[in-house]
Amino acid sequence: MILFLVNAIIVLFLAAPILVVMATAFTTTGYPVFPPEGFTLKWFARVFETGEFTDAAQLSALLAICATAIACTLGTLTALGLSRWKGRGQSALSAFVLSPILFPTIVLGLALLVFYSRIGLQGSFLGLVIGHSIITTPFVVRLVMASLSEFDPAVEEAARNLGAGWWRTFFQVTLPLIRPGVLAGGVFAFILSFDELVVTLFLAAPGMSTLPMRIFTFVQYSSEPTISAIATMLIVVWALIGVPLYARFLSIRHK
């Protein structure tokens, strides 16, 4: 009973800033206040009035799609390789490919900026995609590894013994079995890349602005609830896409 009460308070603490942002999106005042006063949808309309947020969202989506494609390819291959690794070096290798999770993004941002200035990728879209792929790939590796831990390698062997080639075995046997992991990893990579701010701040060309950069600048220099409206839309969309996928993925793991 005490545990339940304590946890209710902790959950409230976790939810507080999110609920507050969502509530202030509907306030009639010209700045975000909690509790909100009155009810209006004009801040949602304001998001689409000027092109600055929609343009930025498009750039973020394009960037996230490219980074996710690389992350899913590299991550799935790595997870498959690690899971069937024989001999020494597996734990060192997996620590290395997972290390970007712990690598401070502020340092990665500056390091890539210095590096790119030398090799001519400074301020390029490709440079941003590479930076985002470094950050997101380890999460794909982790989630595919998790779905591979349930995977019986004998199935692959059976397919091969029945005469299926390497490609056929991969696409018709292995991939369908690890699809929940790849899908969960891909969605997580997309959301992570779409929301990424720190590395992007270092690598974006002047005038280039992703949605998190716009939001960051807006939070610092403006006090209009427009930002609450756009944040509310992001929270709802991510929750709708991310949570069901995770729930299915986790139910597979913890049955």
Binding site: L19, V20, T24, P32, L197, P212
Partner: peptide, 16 residues
């Protein structure tokens, strides 16, 4: 849900 919400948005909530 908090994990899937960006740090900028959650920090904005705390600022309010």
């Amino acid at each position: 849900v908090p994990l899937l919400t960006s740090a900028v948005i959650r920090t904005f909530g705390w600022m309010i």
